[in-house]
Design a protein around this nucleic acid. Structure first.
Length: 280
DNA sequence: TTGTAGACTTGGTTCA
DNA sequence: CCTAACCAAGTCTACA
């Protein structure tokens, strides 16, 4: 499911239910996730009060009273749901927390690309999930000028460069395509050759598309749902993603002539763009 | 060092 | 209609 807006949606749903509660019981399935909970996970987590939940890039962080932090990554298909009753197990449930308020928080992940780590809160920045991670787009460290500076040394296409979490954290295939469209930048443009002015437009576009997607509860293409099962609806606002051959979102040209949104392949991933607004 | 392809895994969609 | 092939929101590793 998860680029930044989807993870934020999950966080917004889980936080009010989990914060301040005590984890009474933890159940870990035997199917291996990409990074399964460590062997001592259950003993360190059980009986602990949850201080708060937060997000860093595409990771969800649950901070506990014993100064441990649970780090969740939802991979490609992970989701959380909140359940009040027993006997509602589903295929691909891998981990569940039963809280002092009686709620059951269940992590489900068909493709098992998800990751669960446990670390000390004080060591979070040094953890391998974050040690090489760029700033969160909503942090003060992420600025237009910083983006321009980072681009200077990048010879690769801007689309691929933006997917690198070490540059800025949280962008994935969908929102990179959408941000480049809003900024009017061709996805194959070499990052180092983008002007300061264009970079400023891109910076604004990234923040705008992420904010709007969060407002919509993320994008529900396949697996993403809110914790109460509701679907995000930002996919209805896509301008180019998944719209091969169709008119782009702000289209005012003749699709018969232009062929509509173009799809290409970059570094093994699909890229969508408008030849009229972003160039050939 | 940097950039790209491949692997991981399951399931939904499309097409012969 | 059934099946096979292909594709997918991410990240890590292995090469060129």
């Amino acid at each position: 499911m998860p680029e930044l807006p989807e993870v934020q949606t999950v966080l917004n749903g889980l936080s009010p239910v989990m914060s301040g509660e005590v984890i009474m019981t933890v159940m870990v399935g035997n199917q291996k996730l990409r990074a399964a909970p460590p062997p001592d996970f259950i003993s360190h987590v059980t009986g602990q009060k949850i201080l708060n939940l937060s997000r860093r890039g595409k990771y969800l962080i649950i901070s506990l009273e014993n100064n441990k932090a649970i780090i969740h990554h939802l991979g490609m298909s992970g989701s959380f749901r909140i359940s009040g009753k027993a006997g509602d197990a589903k295929l691909h449930d891998h981990l569940s927390y039963i809280l002092s308020n009686g709620k059951k928080i269940i992590y489900n992940d068909p493709r098992r690309f998800g990751m669960v780590y446990l670390t000390e809160v004080a060591d979070l920045e040094q953890h391998k999930a974050f040690s090489n991670m760029g700033p969160d787009p909503f942090s003060e460290d992420f600025t237009s000028e910083m983006l321009f500076e980072k681009f200077k040394s990048k010879k690769g296409p801007v689309k691929t460069v933006l997917l690198n979490q070490a540059l800025v954290a949280g962008l994935g295939n969908i929102y990179v395509c959408e941000a480049l469209y809003l900024a009017g930048i061709h996805p194959e443009k070499v990052a180092a050759k983008i002007s300061r002015q264009k970079t400023a437009l891109l910076y604004d576009a990234i923040l705008l598309v992420l904010k709007n997607a969060i407002k919509s509860g993320g994008s529900s293409l396949r697996d993403h749902k809110g914790v109460d099962g509701t679907m995000g609806y930002f996919q209805h606002s896509f301008n180019v993603y998944g719209k091969k051959g169709q008119p782009c979102g702000m289209c005012d040209c003749d699709v018969e002539k232009t062929g509509g949104v173009k799809m290409i392949r970059q570094a093994g991933r699909s890229t969508f763009y408008c030849t009229e607004k972003q160039g050939k």
